[in-house]
Amino acid sequence: MALPLFLLSPALALLVGIVAYPIGRAVWLSFHRLEILQPDLTRFVGLEHYQALLQDPVIRIALQNSVVWVVGVVVFQFLGGLVGAIILNRRFPGRAVVRGLALIPWATPSVLVALMWTWMLDGNYGLLNDLLVKAGILSRFQPWLAQPWSALPAVILADVWQGIPFFAVMLLAALQAIPEDLFEAAKIDGASAWRVFCHVTLPLLLPTILITTMLRMIWTANYMDLIMIMTGGGPGYSSLTVPLHAYYTAYKRLDFGYGATIAIVQVVILAAAIVLYLRQLRANEGMVQ
């Protein structure tokens, strides 16, 4: 027990020392009405905030949007990243440069990702509209960010763009770790590229895929920079996600207690999803013994 403790202690010190208090405080807050500048007046309200959840018409919309957001973003980021990783794993002149360039979306600060996509999606002078109209796909400019049905997908598109290199890098690293002899062997056996991919590559990538998608899901669930700038959760509540709702409630309505409660709803749901996911992972032998 000594060795694990020694190896884990820095990480534990960091997490317990720095993160435990904020999280504990968030849980504590959800049972209190906080007077932000007069802490002495803060009072215990029991389950009041949790009861308020039941009457909050917005939380249901936000939950739905969050599910669409997380699933949409992670699925397409993953697919785009997988394709990228496979391409970048091939040998071609200038590969190092291309690999570096491939990181650009991820390396661009969120505020600029949001501004550039807002600009490109603009309904009056946007690049995307212009291209689609010129290509004859659209007859008229579409206000992508102002229509309830397209606002969330438009922000998802921007985030997919930003996140593809994440998966590309992670999967590329995993591909690199696969011994080339395996491919050689499969090729000698006369397997088609598709069969090699399905029966050799994919199973070997699976552990990495499972872990990175889970980490990305957690990250995406709480990521709201793009939504905040591109739509502010609108039009109406069309692209309002749970953390954004929690943020508005806490910082704009100055109701920190209820804001924390909203966040806790998401924490519980995510935690449940992770437990299920980890079981699956364990069933897939080997990631967590």
């Binding site: 309904g123 009056n124 400019f141 579409q142 206000p143 960010l145 102002a146 739509t231």
Partner: peptide
């Protein structure tokens, strides 16, 4: 007003 008006900032 332009169709994008609802979210135009």
């Amino acid at each position: 007003a332009p169709p994008s008006a609802p979210t135009d900032a």
